[in-house]
Design a protein around this nucleic acid. Structure first.
Lengths: 244, 244
DNA sequence: GGTTGTGAACAAATTCACAGCG
DNA sequence: CGCTGTGAATTTGTTCACAACC
């Protein structure tokens, strides 16, 4: 009764599925019917072996000698990622960052409608930002229940981030995307991801620096064509004791 | 004459240095003088062994039985990341996303002043967003030269992203942070990182979904406390032929 | 005693390379 | 013959565990 296909998809693969999804959408839009791992790799910016390995975790959806049927593969990935339904989100923090995220329309467009923003600043309450009303943070529980909110986006200042996470946990929101420049932790059953915009720039700064001859050599000329070009995002967790 | 300490810092370590940097700043703000790997790990949300290993790539800055001197470690990391200087950035694309990023003040605060925004839409030219003037994209070269721009942020719609990257490359901007939902490539000497906000939500959606019993089981109840909590960010590149 | 720094063991992710199948 | 699917090899990253040292 179980649809055992391969299960236990590696994290690195999960993180790439959305990229394949995007590429396949482009192919579907131009009515392409089948795609080889080579072509998909090109579109997604990875190599073909990785595409095949990744897709093999979902099941056996390719045809040897031909490739993958775009529409079917799209459907399988959509199903795997849970994108066959919408996931309502709330944004906590209606300051610069929160407003920025609300104004960026990309969430709703891609199946993650922003149903409310929350803040403690009374001057912000009742305001509407990009069509989304700002409520008091104390109303979080109500809103989560009313809209069946599954994902909370933290866009508070650093020092308020943990409180926001705690309130999301208390309200039963199982997934959190943290944009605040702070480490936050939650109960084990919560999934927390973080995006720190400034951290991304700092990582670039490292490679920039390196290109100029490394730390000890503050020359601004010199173009060692360097080596590494890309890097992995960190992301840590497990607040509650790691040691054995 | 060279201060060979350890060189060749792993990417995963580079990606964590900014997090340690942030934690150390907090410690410095409260006048803490020394910190153990255990404490720093707690603040950064990683485990202590990782902290020690990571820091060992920078050199030998700890004291056994004591820990690390906060101010010195802060300086070493700052130096390694190239944060002893400011890196002027431009934002390409003055639409929702670009405006959102400009309004988010976090870049300038952390040493990455936004010196200009660029767009091709004539109705946006001359506007000022969060104190930053919008110029025509054709002026990119001039602006890069005038402000010595080191980093370009792409905040265009997907279909304009590659053109933006090409223009940045032509203007000699060596580092690029791509927020557009598209894969972009550049010459080998360019470092490109990407952040796709919607992709982050899609990754959360996967774990959300999984928590509810996996793809084949669209029940909405059931709380398998799941397993994995965090994941790594993907990020790919190397457009120009990967095969051997 | 307490804590670093690091080899060695382990685990995860990537890449190779090719058998198997359409 | 072309392209997938996958074991095996390799590389990268993490964790252990302890000697070295303050």
């Amino acid at each position: 009764m179980v649809r055992r296909s391969k299960r236990r998809i590696p994290e690195a693969t999960v993180a790439r599925l959305p990229v394949y999804h995007r590429s396949l959408n482009e192919l579907a839009a131009e009515k392409t019917e089948t795609v080889s791992s080579e072509q998909l790799a090109e579109l997604a910016g990875v190599n073909a072996a990785k595409v095949r390995k990744d897709l093999s975790y979902l099941g056996t959806y390719g045809t040897r000698g031909v490739g993958y049927e775009v529409s079917n593969l799209l459907f399988q990935i959509r199903k795997e990622l849970g994108l066959t339904q919408e996931w309502p989100v709330v944004i906590i923090g209606a300051g610069n960052l929160g407003q920025a995220l609300a104004n960026y329309g990309g969430f709703g467009e891609r199946g993650f409608p922003v149903v409310a923003m929350l803040d403690v600043d009374s001057t912000k309450l009742g305001q509407t930002i990009a069509g989304v009303a700002v409520h008091h943070l104390d109303d979080l529980g109500d809103i989560v229940e009313r809209y069946d909110v599954a994902i909370g986006i933290i866009a508070t200042p650093a020092q308020a981030a943990q409180d926001a996470a705690d309130r999301l946990a208390a309200a039963g929101v199982p997934s959190v995307l943290n944009f605040a420049p702070a480490v936050v932790s939650g109960p084990a059953q919560q999934t927390i991801r973080k995006v720190d915009l400034a951290v991304e720039l700092q990582i670039l700064s490292f490679y920039q620096q390196r290109r100029n001859g490394g730390p000890g050599t503050p020359s601004s000329a010199g173009t060692s064509s360097a080596d590494t070009n890309d890097a992995v995002e960190p992301i840590e967790r497990d607040p509650a004791e790691v040691a054995k």
